[in-house]
Simulated assay, not measured.
Amino acid sequence: MRVAYILPPSVIVSGVSNGVRVQAESWKSGIETLGVDVVTIDVWGNYDWKSFDIIHIFGYGIWLDEFLPSIFERTTAKIICSPIIDAVRSCWLSRIATYCEFPFFRMYSSWGRLKKSDKYIHTYLVRSEFEKQYLLQTLKITQERIVLQPLSYRIMPTANIHSKEDFCLHVSLLSNDRKNVKRLVESAIKYKYKLVLAGNYGSPTFLKELQKLIGNNSNVEILGFVSEEKLKELYERAKAFALPSIYGEGVGLVALEAAVYGCDIVITNIGGPKEYYSNLAYIINPYSIDEIGQSVIDILNGKTFQPQLREHIMKNYNVDVLNHRLLEIYKRIMKISV
């Protein structure tokens, strides 16, 4: 089997920690161990499109409109799309957006381009029931064309979880507004718990804003970008992990990984991430500083869903199990006529 992986232009030029890139590379490396030849498409490359059995597209955008027609007639491969939906607006607003296009002025919407490209797409591979329902209600895709493939955690912990320390960890592109870092900091200041922030802070301007917000409060620490080894160490030490995003996360892989390392999780009630935890996490309103803060305090004071949460994640989102499942999905799709 030969599979092409195609990432959006915006992801290609972004950093290695981009969530879409991480998802694609994780799936690629996983099924390559099972004997699948996976080619990540380079925009400057020249390819024999007829050599592929599956063409798997991650994300969507106005670029689809030109790309898909150009390869559709040059391949017999089944085209799969993982739309990577992290929208916060309602389905009906996104549905309206599919009609809000003005070709004469070259004004298009990403949802409109996905709707127009639907005739080329054989199957949609989604990461959560949230994404599935969003496709069903927004583009009116039939259920038979949507397949659920959850994500797995990337980083395997040691057999024994170290004793935990009384602090809350957060990992993200800190300057990204949807990560809600400033409210998280405000909750730490108000409830006086130790908060450790790891991840690229984006720009010196944002870092100055964050430092000004923190002021003289020594309980908030900014580490910046950390290595994978350092990230593992933080997962091992932290008692709580918070991801209070205000814009729908697709999955929130860092929270999933933290749970496997024995952290208790404070997760947004927006989007699909909460589906992964089976009521074994603190599901909060990310706009409420008090809900964020009180949940973290409860964890630091000893209220826990562990080790049941860790066992749940390791059983249901095991990387080896999901790699085999992805391969079986590809095989099944190859046998289905368009």
Rank of each mutant, 00 (worst) to 15 (best):
196 V>N: 03
173 L>N: 08
253 L>W: 00
153 Y>G: 04
169 L>P: 00
163 S>W: 01
256 L>A: 01
229 E>F: 11
257 E>F: 12
242 A>V: 00
165 E>S: 13
225 F>W: 12
166 D>C: 10
257 E>D: 14
174 L>N: 14
202 G>S: 08
283 I>D: 11
224 G>K: 14
241 F>W: 09
210 L>I: 06
260 V>C: 14
158 T>K: 15
232 K>S: 10
183 R>F: 11
197 L>S: 06
180 N>D: 13
204 P>C: 04
232 K>Q: 13
159 A>F: 09
233 E>H: 14
195 L>I: 01
283 I>G: 06
259 A>Y: 13
158 T>Y: 15
288 S>K: 07
288 S>R: 03
210 L>W: 10
283 I>C: 12
192 K>F: 07
245 S>H: 05
279 N>M: 04
181 V>P: 04
241 F>E: 01
214 I>N: 04
178 R>A: 11
226 V>N: 12
170 H>P: 00
275 E>V: 09
263 C>E: 06
208 K>D: 08
201 Y>G: 03
257 E>W: 13
225 F>I: 01
273 P>Y: 05
198 A>G: 11
259 A>M: 07
199 G>S: 08
218 S>K: 15
165 E>R: 14
158 T>C: 14
234 L>C: 07
233 E>W: 12
153 Y>H: 11
260 V>S: 06
191 Y>Q: 03
158 T>L: 14
251 V>N: 03
249 E>Y: 06
279 N>W: 02
246 I>W: 12
189 I>W: 13
212 K>E: 09
217 N>A: 14
159 A>R: 13
157 P>T: 03
226 V>H: 10
233 E>C: 06
159 A>Q: 15
